[in-house]
């Protein structure tokens, strides 16, 4: 068996007292600075205090609505195709509006599989899906409640929550009330 002999500190150095005191001086400096200026501390008292999320945050999804409250989504399946986690499940149905071909009958996002990559938002030509609700603590007790339904995703007042995760998109839509500015 191989045993390696240590050749380290010898004699008085073995007590490490000087080293300990030196280190303490450095940390003590920080303690004193922080005591006199608590605002300088890099501590957030989560969950009582929450850091403001920047506008670019990729947060919880929502489905945008038209003025009349119907979803903007036309069930084109582009987001479901782009999704690397295969977590968007859409079932299309015919729309009663003659100007619109299809609408989603079912639009489920499985949050347990979602990786928050943002590809769905980038893929959507109608700006119908956004990830701008600044909620990063998505947790629940059952698996079923984390599969977000169309109703849940549309349960918002259609306002810009924050400036929004809004990357440049290849297709600019120009017609209708839901055209992108």
């Amino acid at each position: 068996m191989k045993v390696v002999e240590r050749t380290g500190a010898q004699g008085a150095e073995k007590f490490y007292l000087i080293a300990v005191v030196q280190g303490l001086f450095l940390t003590l400096g920080h303690v004193i600075k922080n005591l006199f200026n608590p605002k300088r501390m890099s501590v957030v008292f989560y969950p009582e205090q929450k850091k403001a999320l920047p506008p670019a945050t990729r947060g919880r999804h929502r489905l945008m609505k038209r003025e009349d409250g119907t979803p903007r989504c036309t069930a084109c399946m582009l987001c479901a195709t782009a999704c690397p986690a295969e977590c968007i499940h859409i079932k299309a149905e015919e729309s009663p509006d003659p100007n619109i071909e299809k609408r989603p009958e079912k639009f489920d996002i499985d949050m347990l599989r979602c990786v928050f990559c943002g590809f769905c938002v980038e893929a959507c030509p109608l700006d119908a899906i956004r990830m701008d609700i600044p909620d990063v603590t998505i947790a629940d007790y059952t698996r079923e409640s984390l599969v977000y339904s169309k109703e849940f995703l549309m349960n918002h007042d259609n306002k810009d929550v924050v400036t929004g995760y809004n990357p440049p998109r290849p297709v600019q839509l120009t017609h209708g009330p839901h055209a992108r500015p």
Binding site: L53, P54, A56, T57, R58, V115, F116, C117, G118, Y165
Partner: peptide
Amino acid sequence: EMTCGQRLTYN
């Protein structure tokens, strides 16, 4: 986070 919106898995 300011740039791409995520803190760990950026894509």
